[in-house]
């Protein structure tokens, strides 16, 4: 009898030790894994959470910041002009967007004589990129390549460690990319640490991986004119353009969350009905 219980207790002890070891390790591990970059601050965005939706005014201001500041180097080639007037986005009027599109020159063709030609943009065109190709961009930017921003809010993230990541699943925290973009945009002008080696042509930004970014500080107070009374500050510009880029990365976000809520109600009711049906069906069987 004692021969039987002894291995049992030792296995239990082993199991407990293993669980404690794994738990301790998982708690301390994120500290080991964290890179040199500062962790972005978690912001409060209007589109987070199950009922999140974009602020139309913010998206319209964000588009203005994009157009007047970012667009000289960064494209949004996956976005069509028509998207700016569709539901769930900035929802500009059709007239505004027709006018906007006509201000862009879009290459078309070939025409009857086989030549490519430029014409004013139409609603169905996508935004022309500022550079024809990566090589041209690098040549104009001293070797750096300004990435297309269509998906940037989903293509960037930062690590939060194992337990916080699990928590993000429950709290629906999905805005890591937006927090990162905002942190980088307002992260310029900080004192360079003594141990950081200044790199020629690069700018110090502790939120950018490695700390040195080719993009100079793009925003300054009062740079873009706001007509709706919103403060014309770097922080506000950054929030607005981040919101706009969150929308370009996920243009059907509002439709997704709205449909999700309807589906959840349906599934919960359906599950409830099935549960009671199951109870009834099994009520005459011991199981």
């Amino acid at each position: 009898m004692s021969a039987k219980t002894r291995p049992m207790t030792s296995v239990s002890a082993l199991l407990k030790a293993a669980v404690i070891a794994v738990a301790t390790f998982a708690v301390t591990a994120p500290a080991l894994a964290a890179g040199p970059a500062h962790t972005p601050h978690r912001e409060d965005w209007s589109w987070s959470g199950p009922f999140g939706h974009f602020d139309r005014g913010q998206l319209q201001r964000g588009f203005k910041v994009y157009r007047e500041v970012c667009a000289s180097c960064h494209g949004i080639k996956l976005v069509a002009f028509r998207n700016l007037m569709e539901d769930g986005g900035p929802e500009f009027s059709e007239g505004q967007i027709r006018l906007l599109a006509s201000e862009y020159q879009v290459q078309d063709g070939p025409d009857e004589s086989g030549e490519m030609f430029d014409r004013p943009g139409r609603l169905s065109d996508r935004f022309p990129s500022p550079f024809p190709n990566e090589q041209a961009a690098r040549a104009a930017q001293g070797g750096a390549y300004p990435p297309d921003l269509s998906l940037i809010a989903k293509a960037r993230t930062y690590t939060r460690g194992f337990w916080l990541s699990l928590l993000d699943l429950v709290t629906q925290y999905q805005e890591h990319g937006a927090d990162y973009l905002h942190a980088v945009l307002v992260g310029y002008g900080q004192p360079v640490p003594a141990d950081a080696h200044a790199q020629p042509g690069l700018h110090y930004n502790p939120y950018f991986p490695g700390g040195w970014i080719a993009m100079p500080n793009p925003l300054s107070d009062g740079q873009v004119e706001y007509t709706d009374g919103t403060p014309a500050t770097v922080d506000q510009y950054s929030r607005d353009v981040t919101a706009f880029l969150a929308w370009t990365a996920e243009p059907h976000l509002e439709a997704r969350k709205q449909l999700g809520f309807v589906v959840f109600i349906f599934l919960f009711v359906f599950a409830g009905l099935l549960y009671f049906t199951k109870k009834k069906v099994w009520s005459n069987v011991a199981h």
């Binding site: 199950p50 989903k154 993000d168 699943l169 629906q172 999905q174 997704r256 969350k257 449909l259 999700g260 809520f261 589906v263 959840f264």
Partner: peptide, 8 residues
């Protein structure tokens, strides 16, 4: 996952 954290 599908509706609230599709890229998780």
């Amino acid at each position: 996952f599908l509706f609230y954290v599709p890229n998780y």
